[in-house]
């Protein structure tokens, strides 16, 4: 084996796109493998970069076990959960393109939750809690809020993803906010008016955009089209018909 080949097996070349004051700066980083066969995750690469070349590199992470949903970044332009995504030679690690970047790989996330402020689980205290929820309900509450579903979402793209601080919450929704609303529809404890409320909220967030969309992709495999979007569209049509 030549010297170069040996070296190549010890290192992995990755581009980390840092970001500060509105500007992207790609940095080439050589990840040093701990052994020849190591297949590092994106988070391993970021941690090593912080330990060596980029001590002030900013990125989010939490549990390292794909449960907390905070470490999502783009790898070669696609959203990936960094702690459980294997990195390959020449991969590019960058902040998610669907949310405003603050610094390096950190994006601002809270305009998504603010969109539902005051619109979920109001006055649910008085209902009988001792009712079994369906499997579909539990499928929806397996969402870890990684926001990978924002990618290529035409509804979310209607928002202007800028950094202006006045933009505290987005006008248009996304698969995650629809999922939270559909959870209320699926919740056996919700009253009919709460369910109708949730469906109306979905319409207000721009549900009609979904009519011409082939469907969304979930970061952990929830059937967003079948379990969230389609049922909401059907329900909203039913409400519209009744009102008509």
């Amino acid at each position: 084996m030549t010297k170069k080949e040996t070296r190549d097996r010890q290192y992995l070349n990755v581009t980390i796109v840092t970001h500060s004051e509105g500007k992207d700066m790609p940095v080439n980083f050589k990840y040093k493998k701990r052994h020849d066969r190591e297949k590092p995750m994106a988070l391993d690469v970021l941690l090593q970069a912080q330990e060596t070349k980029l001590p002030d590199l900013a990125f989010r992470y939490g549990c390292r076990a794909r449960n907390c949903g905070v470490c999502t970044i783009d790898i070669n332009g696609l959203p990936r959960i960094a702690c459980r995504s294997v990195v390959r030679e020449n991969d590019k690690l960058k902040a998610m393109s669907t949310l405003p970047v603050i610094t390096d790989l950190v994006v601002r996330r809270d305009q998504i939750s603010r969109q539902l402020r005051g619109k979920i689980y109001r006055n649910s205290g008085g209902n009988d809690l001792n009712v079994d929820a369906s499997e579909d309900y539990h499928e929806l509450t397996s969402c870890i809020e990684c926001y990978a579903c924002l990618h290529n979402c035409p509804m979310h793209q209607k928002n202007s993803i800028d950094q202006s601080e006045s933009n505290e919450s987005y006008e248009y929704g996304n698969p995650f906010s629809l999922l939270k609303l559909q959870t209320i529809v699926m919740d056996p404890v919700s009253s009919n008016s709460q369910k109708n409320d949730a469906i109306t909220q979905a319409v207000n967030l721009g549900l009609d955009t979904c009519l011409n969309c082939p469907g969304c992709k979930c970061g952990i495999g929830i059937d967003l089209k079948g379990k969230v979007v389609d049922p909401l569209i059907t329900a909203s049509k039913k409400i519209a018909d009744e009102q008509f």
């Binding site: 939750s113 005051g118 979920i120 539990h138 397996s142 969402c143 870890i144």
Partner: peptide
């Protein structure tokens, strides 16, 4: 869904 189910409930209690 283990703790994630609690995560949703806690999220809801603040956002609602």
């Amino acid at each position: 869904n283990s703790g994630v189910a609690f995560g949703h409930a806690n999220w809801n209690s603040i956002v609602k």
